[in-house]
């Protein structure tokens, strides 16, 4: 569980708060999506959840963030990292090895996993992420989507309770983006990992996440189950956040027919809703 309480943060070099009085609870086993326009503080919030802030980036930090009961300000980043795995926005700067298996070994070695266990953990992580066939490949020979999976596997191997990812599909095509989200869903549902994702691709996010938090100008302006958040289309429009066309369709349909139409996030749901309205 992640608990963010009255969190205000300002980077050392900055003149304005990156986050202002943020309160947010991410329960165990949740799949939370964070959305918001550029500069809203999404990455900052993610870094606060993983403890990178305040440890790696200096600044004024007020309030408290607790991860799995540990206060991030009072615990070392290394200890927090056992609980939270972070995938950075630029995967290429995160990967430090030239071969896939070495990348996954790295964290296992550092965190002192007994050597007789390491082999199994390595194999298991590759399998969970579905990249067993890439084990001996060089990183340079992999596609963007495959590299993203390697980065995820290198964290999954450490068996964190929570995985936080910063725009994991930013550079990927629609097909690979969907694959990454499918993988995150598997990790969330079958392996019980709590997943927090910052993402611009709202359509994909709404389909896979179960909760959304909307950030604007350093504040959380809305938080809750996906459909609840997407039902407030005027708010999303006002702050300049895209909304899945299916959700737009369902809200327009409700308005025009004067009937109750559930908020739809996928094309399939919208088709069903339309058929029900037409009888």
């Amino acid at each position: 569980m992640i608990e963010v309480q009255s969190l205000t943060f300002r980077y050392e070099v900055s003149e304005r708060d990156a986050l202002r009085d943020v309160n947010l609870t991410v329960p165990d086993g949740a799949f939370l999506g964070i959305i918001g326009p550029a500069g809203a503080g999404k990455t900052t919030l993610l870094h606060c959840m993983s403890g990178i802030i305040p440890h790696a980036f200096p600044g004024d930090f007020y309030g408290a963030v607790r991860v799995g009961g540990l206060d991030t300000a009072d615990n070392r980043l290394t200890d927090l990292s056992r609980l939270v795995g972070t995938v950075f926005q630029d995967v290429d700067s995160q990967i430090i090895s030239s071969v896939v298996e070495d990348e996954i070994l790295y964290g296992l070695e550092n965190f002192g996993v007994p050597h007789e266990e390491i082999g199994d953990r390595l194999t298991a992580a590759l399998e969970q992420v579905g990249i067993s066939s890439l084990r001996e490949r060089t990183i340079a020979s992999l596609s963007g989507g495959q590299r993203q999976k390697v980065a995820i596997a290198s964290l999954v191997a450490l068996r964190p309770q929570i995985l936080v990812l910063d725009e994991p599909t930013g550079e990927l095509d629609p097909f690979s983006s969907r694959q990454i989200f499918t993988l995150l869903r598997t990790l969330n549902r079958e392996h019980g990992m709590t997943v927090v994702v910052v993402e611009q691709k709202i359509m994909l996010l709404s389909e896979f996440a179960d909760r959304l938090a909307v950030l604007n100008d350093g504040e959380i302006v809305k938080e809750g189950p996906v459909r609840g958040v997407l039902s407030d289309i005027p708010l999303l429009e006002r702050i300049g956040v895209n909304c899945p066309r299916a959700a737009l369709f369902s809200s327009l349909l409700a308005e025009k027919t004067g009937t109750e139409v559930p908020v739809c996030v996928s094309a399939e749901e919208a088709v069903e809703a339309a058929r029900r309205v037409m009888g």
Partner: peptide
């Protein structure tokens, strides 16, 4: 970014 990424994967413990 590389330094931070290494740190959260236990660089200091090695």
């Amino acid at each position: 970014a590389t330094a931070t990424a290494a740190e959260v994967r236990g660089f200091n413990l090695r």
